[in-house]
């Protein structure tokens, strides 16, 4: 757990946006991870992807870290934002845009609006 925690701390400090997921952003291995990675990719967000399937200690470690039982998990500036349901809701409500803006994370606003138009 300590090793996993150190690794997570270091990853979150080195990257403004981190997605802990099953698979990679290019090849997600789970529908929920795929949805969140897809949103971030579509919005042109520069994010680090961490494949928890490649590291058993991390797979449990990230759940302990945030006291959150599921994967994917999104972190912005080291703060846990949520999993698939929360990120989806925040994307559609515009809260995710606001969070990125507040934290100086660049993204394509037109793409975000397109997601909302398509799901209106």
């Amino acid at each position: 757990m300590t090793d996993a925690k150190t690794k997570i701390d270091e990853t979150n400090q080195a990257n403004d946006v981190v997605l802990y997921m099953k698979g990679t952003k290019e090849m997600p291995q789970c529908g929920f991870s795929s949805r969140v990675a897809g949103v971030l990719n579509y919005m042109g967000v520069d994010f680090a992807d961490v494949n928890v399937l490649a590291d058993e200690a991390l797979r449990q470690g990230i759940k302990d870290y945030s006291d959150w039982p599921t994967i994917p998990q999104l972190y912005v500036k080291g703060e846990f934002v949520g999993g698939c349901d929360i990120i989806t809701e925040m994307t559609l409500s515009g809260e995710l845009d606001a969070l990125f803006e507040d934290n100086g994370v660049t993204f394509d606003k037109d793409a975000a609006n397109k997601i909302r138009e398509a799901n209106a």
Binding site: G82, G83, C84, D85, I86, E89, S93
Partner: peptide, 29 residues
């Protein structure tokens, strides 16, 4: 949002949560 989800996780309990592979929650805005 996070607090609402946590409340549901807690209400279901660790054992039940571990038995469920995937849980999608709509808890309102």
């Amino acid at each position: 949002r996070i607090a609402k989800h946590r409340a549901v996780h807690e209400a279901l309990g660790k054992t039940l949560m571990a038995q469920i592979h995937a849980l999608s929650l709509d808890l309102g805005t």
